[in-house]
């Protein structure tokens, strides 16, 4: 993917999108829905960061998925179709199926989160609360400012201790822990005392006046309007199907899927469009603005 136009959409759209997709992935245990979500999540994650995603999938997701598939039938003995007995406990087909479904669900949730972490930066997240919770959003923004500064200061303090001949990364475990405490203590004093300057700087610039506004660097343009409309339509369609019970599935006591109908086919399409929305959007933009692939 050459450009990532999706990431440039308004944060409200991004947040709505990820919330919807992640919640849907968590709750829809229907195999078709699981497959769609996993497939799209994996594809998008790979297109965003191929190497990291493959490493993450192999090292983290795959073992977890295997573990969940195995553990579920071991501790869940509900279900009618007994496959075999282990230690006089039945291993059932239903539990195995449910285990596999859970594994797929969990994997896709993790994949979607990995995409979200790349797109939904702290800055975008903070801007969401700008209007509704200005103090909270300012608090977050200040913490984001302080954390890198404190990390740098921690390094400076550690080095200052080192410069006095009191190295911190040497010595026994208790010594190292004690040195760490010393650093943390110096950092705390420094941070609290200098915080007063920050507070003064805030008040000098009028913090505390009534009627504080919030500057939105992200503009909600007409493209955003269109995209949000399409997105909402897809989400409502899927939700409607959910209320109709189209994507529900019963695993216990025996597997039972809702009957297949044109409506369910329509829902699958909608869910697929929803899950592949970012990739489709990027593809369209690629053709439209960047002169094809």
């Amino acid at each position: 993917m050459k450009t990532n136009d999706f990431a440039k959409l308004h944060p409200v759209i991004l947040f709505t999108y990820f919330t919807a997709v992640i919640l849907f992935s968590m709750f829809f245990m229907h195999p078709v829905f699981l497959a769609i979500s996993f497939f799209c999540g994996f594809l998008w994650a790979v297109s965003l960061a191929p190497r990291e995603t493959l490493r993450f999938t192999l090292k983290c997701i795959l073992p977890l998925a295997v573990l969940m598939t195995v553990i579920n039938p071991m501790i869940n003995h509900a279900g009618l179709t007994v496959l075999l007995y282990v230690n006089d406990r039945p291993i059932t087909l239903e539990a195995c199926a449910y285990g596999a479904a859970s594994a797929a669900m969990f994997s896709s949730v993790l994949l979607w989160f990995s995409c979200s972490n790349r797109i939904m930066t702290a800055e975008k997240f903070i801007s969401l609360f700008g209007r509704a919770a200005p103090s909270f959003s300012l608090l977050l923004s200040m913490v984001m400012r302080f954390v890198p500064r404190f990390k740098a200061q921690t390094r400076a303090i550690a080095e200052a201790q080192d410069g006095l001949g009191r190295g911190v990364d040497s010595g026994s475990l208790p010594t190292r822990a004690k040195n760490g405490m010393k650093i943390l203590s110096i950092l705390t004093t420094w941070a609290l005392e200098n915080g007063v300057i920050t507070a003064d700087s805030m008040r000098a610039r009028g913090y505390g006046l009534p009627g504080r506004g919030r500057f939105q660097i992200y503009r909600f343009d007409s493209r955003d309007k269109w995209m949000l409309t399409i997105l909402s339509a897809l989400i409502f369609a899927v939700l409607f199907g959910f209320i109709k019970g189209e994507n529900s599935i019963r695993y216990f006591p025996f597997l039972s899927l809702p009957p297949f109908s044109p409506f369910s086919f329509f829902l699958y399409i909608c869910y697929f469009l929803l899950c592949s929305y970012p990739m489709l959007f990027n593809a369209v933009c690629e053709v439209k603005y960047h002169g094809g692939f």
Partner: peptide, 23 residues
């Protein structure tokens, strides 16, 4: 210590937000 927020644009806007100006 004077800089309050994490982004340059937000730092520039901070005082104006306090004054309650429009975006």
């Amino acid at each position: 210590e004077q800089a309050v927020t994490d982004k340059v644009w937000h730092e520039l806007a901070f005082g104006l937000e306090n004054l309650g100006l429009e975006s």
